[in-house]
Design a binder for these strands. Structure first.
Lengths: 228, 228
DNA sequence: CGTATGGTTGAGGTAATTCAACCTGTGTGG
DNA sequence: CCACACAGGTTGAATTACCTCAACCATACG
């Protein structure tokens, strides 16, 4: 499916935003738009990586299953995020849609050529990459020192922010895009612990469960304080 | 101090290796060589970032101290590694030398200009960045699922490999470049737990302590197996 | 309806933390 | 040269946060 950059919801934040009108038009010719449903695999670990992509709508997870079959979610990818390893022969990790998602897919060789041709694109990718690296390290910082309660609070706060259209404050009411199992896998906890921590947050009057997935943030300040 | 790329120990692996002879000469004119002693700060969190650097010798840590004053080591930087955030106005993290280290320092604006001028350099940095991201995610994968014993074994195995000049097998005998406290901070454990795990590895005949810092790997295979 | 999937809650076990004592090497000043 | 302080390291005992195992509940779906 053809690309429509004019109506792209992330055209000001994605890597391609760094390009001029003409350059973007040229790049757009190489790409294709595709929709993925929840659970669909975008890239599978071990696959030949012949494509890369920008996420325009939805939410992806990057995950790794170890030898025992346990899945660990390494990162979430939000709209404007870039996926696809440009320098690995095969994919290290699985990339799977957590919600109905739309991506701009590019053949890897074409994209590589574009990087060489457009320094602005290289810079933009470098910047994205640096941000991803920063996020990953922030994860690491969270991972160890903080208690299960802080991790869950932090995740809910982050998801609230992601659900909001405003950059400054989070959404008051939103649906969790992840199952308890996925949250547990992302935070390095068990399903039961995540469940208990959410119960605790509810008992303390910080959030309310409006449905199995629905969350209402009753006290955003305290939620941020616990997580941050 | 002037740069001597001809004798640089990482000239085949660092980002600048992607450049042609002429390009590298030009880049070299912008940089300066500097030596740091153990404990010296290369960049401090909050500093204006007006420089970036390639590590040629030694070992650095990237660390973060939280509001309570607890330090968490986010990553180690080995020779050929690149440090300095190109896109942040100020440094997010501290970068500190763990051993006597040598770096090639570049003014950030000059390096940015070089990136725009030399596509090969941009690619090389993108590649480094992708590798760092992969390493950070590997850390995350380790962080949660694995037991303290596995984390310590994994770290010793990694340090053994880093101490070796051969890429395929680790050094049999080496000195730990980190204190127990630094190991604990890197792994998200306590000093005591790290100490106990090393004691356990010694009791199991997998390593020997030749001095407070000296480690002799008695059974590399079993060490690797434990570390994953 | 019955089955599956996801979620909550409880009881009990355990690995890692916390708190605390003690050891070891190194450097400093009397 | 000894005394002492100090930082890093080891070891032990008690505590606790999280995990494991297990039962049960809710919603969706063929």
């Amino acid at each position: 499916m053809k690309l429509h950059c004019d109506t792209c919801p992330v055209r000001e934040r994605a890597a391609c935003a760094a390009l001029s009108e003409d350059e973007r038009t040229e790049l757009a010719r190489l790409g294709a738009h595709r929709t993925f449903a929840r659970g669909d695999t975008v890239f599978a670990a071990g696959d030949d990586l012949d494509a890369c992509a920008t996420l325009t709508e939805g939410l992806l997870k990057i995950s790794h299953v170890d030898e025992d079959g346990n899945e660990r979610i390494l990162s979430l990818i939000h709209p404007a995020g870039f996926v696809g390893e440009m320098f690995a022969p095969v994919a290290h990790h699985d990339v799977v849609a957590l919600t109905s998602s739309k991506l701009c897919l590019f053949p890897r060789s074409d994209y590589e050529a574009a990087i060489d041709r457009f320094p602005a694109l290289a810079r933009a990718l470098l910047r994205r990459s640096a941000e991803d690296l920063y996020d990953a390290r922030a994860q690491i910082a969270l991972d160890s020192k903080r208690s299960a309660g802080a991790k869950v609070a932090n995740l809910l706060a982050a998801l609230s922010r992601a659900a909001s259209h405003s950059p400054c404050h989070g959404a008051e009411h939103f649906d969790l895009p992840l199952t308890r199992g996925e949250m547990a896998s992302l935070l390095g906890l068990t399903i039961e612990t995540v469940s208990r921590q959410i119960t605790k947050l509810e008992q303390d009057g910080i959030v309310e469960r409006t449905s199995t997935r629905g969350i209402l943030v009753a006290d955003a300040a305290r939620l941020e304080a616990l997580g941050g």
